[in-house]
């Protein structure tokens, strides 16, 4: 792309005006505000960060967030790769509908996600909730509910990365492997998986960022009990509203740090895969 930008006609003043407008827009909308959160987190040096690390409830919240995110990412990766293979390599009735439905979680409000899960798995009058609860399995206001909510919101991310790669790939190599006697598992592990590796990695990184940061859906299903079901994003809200701005900024800074790290990882590996 770079070598094609030479013609003199694109060197007019409007090019610099547009460049300036775009940079200013992104500076005021994203760069400066994000920088300020970092700055506010360190307003007392490392006091704020030390404060959250020494608070056992916040440490519990951070642990819970990480545990839930890892479980959610594993579930979504297995499901995502599996369903991508089915969508791309097989024909079955309702495929087009399924493919459209898989994108639904992207455009559903997190609050609606939470509500939907409560209506089905709620312990008091959900569709399945009372039965599950009498069998000793509490979903809503417990960790399984937080996992379900997190899996729901991050569901399409792996699929959206893997499907285009699989389509691009075609299935000639897989067919060759099969005709040489490899079974389905061998073909997947030796041929398909290495070829879609980068797509899967993007999907995992994006899902991880999304899972660590889910707020609305988790707020509805978790019950937000301090030291039990309160996650990191809920800590940010509670601390801010309770005038512990230092703690809120420090926790927000940690979350933002992970999010930005995920973005940078993706942007570093993406060009490699594109070429």
């Amino acid at each position: 792309m770079a070598d094609r930008t030479a013609p003199a006609r694109t060197r007019g003043p409007s090019r610099y005006v547009i460049r300036l407008v775009v940079i200013a827009y992104l500076f005021f909308l994203v760069a400066w505000p994000v920088y300020l959160v970092g700055k506010n987190a360190f307003s007392d040096g490392f006091e704020n960060l030390r404060g959250i690390i020494e608070d056992p409830d916040i440490v519990h919240a951070l642990n819970l967030t990480i545990t839930v995110a890892i479980i959610a990412v594993v579930i979504n990766t297995v499901f995502g790769v599996g369903i991508s293979l089915l969508l791309v390599r097989y024909q079955f009735p309702g495929k087009r509908l399924l493919s459209a439905l898989l994108d639904v979680p992207l455009s559903v409000s997190p609050i609606v996600v939470g509500l939907a899960l409560v209506l089905v798995y709620g312990g008091r009058n959900g569709w399945f909730g009372p039965t599950l609860e009498s069998a000793g399995f509490q979903v809503i206001f417990a960790t399984p509910g937080i996992v379900l909510a997190t899996v729901f919101v991050a569901l399409p991310l792996v699929i959206r990365e893997v499907v285009p790669v699989l389509e691009e790939l075609g299935d000639e190599q897989e067919q060759a492997a099969r005709s040489l006697g490899a079974n389905a598992v061998q073909t997947f592990l030796r041929i398909t998986l290495p070829a879609i590796k980068w797509g899967v990695i993007y999907g995992v990184v994006l899902s991880l960022a999304r899972s660590l940061g889910e707020f609305g859906a988790v707020k509805v299903v978790s019950g937000n009990v301090l030291g039990e079901t309160r996650t990191a994003t809920l800590v940010v809200e509670e601390n801010y509203l309770n005038f512990d701005k230092g703690g809120a900024y420090a926790t927000a800074f940690l979350l933002a740090l992970v999010a930005v790290a995920c973005i940078i990882v993706v942007s570093v590996i993406r060009p490699k895969e594109d070429r």
């Binding site: 994006l206 960022a209 940061g213 994003t233 940010v236 809120a248 927000a252 933002a256 999010a259 973005i263």
Partner: peptide, 14 residues
């Protein structure tokens, strides 16, 4: 990409 990856509550704070 930051707005996509940033937790929404953090986006509000930002």
């Amino acid at each position: 990409d930051i707005p996509f990856a940033l937790p929404t509550i953090v986006a509000g704070l930002v």
